[in-house]
Every structure is written in structure tokens, then in C-alpha cells.
Design a protein around this nucleic acid. Sequence first.
DNA 1: GGAAAATAGTTGAAGCCTAAACTATCCCGG
DNA 2: CCGGGATAGTTTAGGCTTCAACTATTTTCC
Lengths: 164, 164
Amino acid sequence: MPLDAETALADAPPGHKDELRLWLRLLTCTNLIEAEIRRRLRAEFDTTLPRFDLLAQLERHPGGLTLGDISRRMMVSNGNVTGLAARLEEEGLVERRVSATDRRAQSLRLTAKGRREFARQSAAHEGWVAELLGGLSIAEREALQTLLGRAKASVTASLQEGGA
Amino acid sequence: MPLDAETALADAPPGHKDELRLWLRLLTCTNLIEAEIRRRLRAEFDTTLPRFDLLAQLERHPGGLTLGDISRRMMVSNGNVTGLAARLEEEGLVERRVSATDRRAQSLRLTAKGRREFARQSAAHEGWVAELLGGLSIAEREALQTLLGRAKASVTASLQEGGA
DNA sequence: GGAAAATAGTTGAAGCCTAAACTATCCCGG
DNA sequence: CCGGGATAGTTTAGGCTTCAACTATTTTCC
């Protein structure tokens, strides 16, 4: 496991536009947190972030979601969800049910075991994040939340334009 | 290509600590940008983000870097760099040279072709980022840069504690 | 000098991910 | 009713990524 945050690719190669510096810092920051979360999911629950994310989606939609719904919500490809769902089903955490009205579609939902497992994982996950970001004051967190909202708006606006 | 940013996993599942909301927004924001950059690298240069990152490392160190250096700087595993370097070498963008003083080590550097290619990619990349984040004012960018620095400090402090 | 520990890199198994091609089904208009 | 287009999922090929086991070499230190 490398993970030497100090010498990371990411921070401040000089002589570039400050948008680039901002992007690299954003990336470092996210990667740092994400790597730690992945590490702990593996170490404490022997699972992965994509599995966790899929379970989170199902938890928020107890009525079930189709594979296509999940693919859209997780912003990943269709084929990706096929494999992920297969593994989770094999582990007994989710179950499939073919739609009564559309024989192409099938909806996924958590099994009782899946709900139990996810509850444990989710509680721990929330704690980890609170711990990692706990060094920020409430004011800082709010300001960051707002600014990231602005950044997201900038990006989506730019994508709209390009795609229009 | 799914990529429906509006219905993303990420934003604001209610009833959670605000650290979690902040983390999810950070993640969405980063993923949105990163996905677009990957898409354009593929579309315009038929390459990938990891390849680009590796070339960027070499560009910043014209004297060459060992595979281990690269692995540490990119914060990825050793084995990962082995494969990446093999593909880039095969494409003629980098060249290996066994160390004169340590027969285990080999250093990588850009070939002339690699330098040329990276220059093109890098210029485009910088433009994309400026475009995507161009909706933010200078003040917003500076504030975000500072707050992300604080966030990174919070995370690394938390990791230090845990590992101490 | 030589054994033991550390370091550089490779390999293999497994999971994640995408794009593109494919199958099966549904829906719409004539 | 039926042909064509859209939609739901699967499959395949290939790249990325990790971890763990491995080889080769160097360093440490007795």
C-alpha cells in the first residue's frame, strides 16, 4: 500500500492556471478520503465502495429499483451494474424480481441480510466521514458545501453548453 | 454512457450528519469533472487518465523517475505502475533505462514522441479544466482552494492520529 | 564474509469499469 | 396486426486497480 499523501501528484505544479491548481487540490482531497474509506470498508467489512453504494441506493428505495435505475443513479454503465448485482445476489444481500408488467425489467431489493449488513456498514461509514472531516468548523463546512455547489453548477452549465 | 448528474447518488440523502452531506457533494463534484476529463482524453487523444498522469510525472522530472518513485507520487500500487509503464513503453511514449548503480531499479523518462504527445494533451487538459470551473469567480476559486486545503489538513491529521 | 532484512520490480487472481455488440421485449404508428 | 424504433439487460474485450506471493538485488550488521 503506497499512499504517500505528501508527495502526491496532485498539489500545485507551478506555472499553471489557478483553475488547474484548484482541480488538482479537489482531486487530492477526494482521493485521500475515498482511499481511506475503501481501505476501511475492506478491512472492517470485507466489501468495496461500489457494493456499498449499490446497497445504499436500495436502502433509500425499499420498493426496489431496476438495474437501469441503479445504473443511472450511480452514474455507471449498464454492464457494470449487471456484474455488481450478480455478486451481491450471490452473497445473499440483494434479490431480483422480474417485473410483472415488463418481462425485460427486473427490480432489485435488499434481503433481510442485506438490510442488516448495510445498517452496520452505513453507521460505520458515517462515523468515518465525520471523523475525517471533523477538523473543519461548522462555518467552514457550510462554506465548503456552498462553494462546491457553485462548482458543480459551473461544471454542469459548461457541460450543457457543450452538449446543446 | 449514463452520466445523469441530476439524479446522482450523491446529493443530500436527508437525515445524516452534515459531514456526510459535505463528503457526498465533494465526491459528486470531483466525479463529474473527472468523468468529463476521462471522456475527452479518450475522445480526443485516445488515451486514459492514468496514462496522462504518469506522463505528467515524467514531464516534471526530466531526469527520470524509477517505477517506485512513480508509484509513490501517483499514490497507486507498485504492480499498477508495472502495467501502465509497459503499455506506455509499447506505444513509444516512454523509455526504460536500468540504473547504473542498482540493478534492481530502472528509471523511466519521456521519449521525444512522449514529450510531444504530452504537450498536446496537457494544453488541452488545462483548457478543459479552466472551462469547467470557469463559472466560479476568482474570489470563489480562492476561497474554495483555501477551504479544500483545510479539509485536506483535517483528513491528514485524522489519518496521523489513527496511525500513530 | 555472509546471513538476514529491506528494497525494486513482476506476476497472478480477482474485482471494477467502459464501450460496443448483442438478445429479448415493449410500444407506436400505419 | 405487424414492422420499426426504443428500452432493459447481458456479454465480450480490454484497461485499471489492488493485494499477496514471488524473484532479484542491495544493504545492514555481526
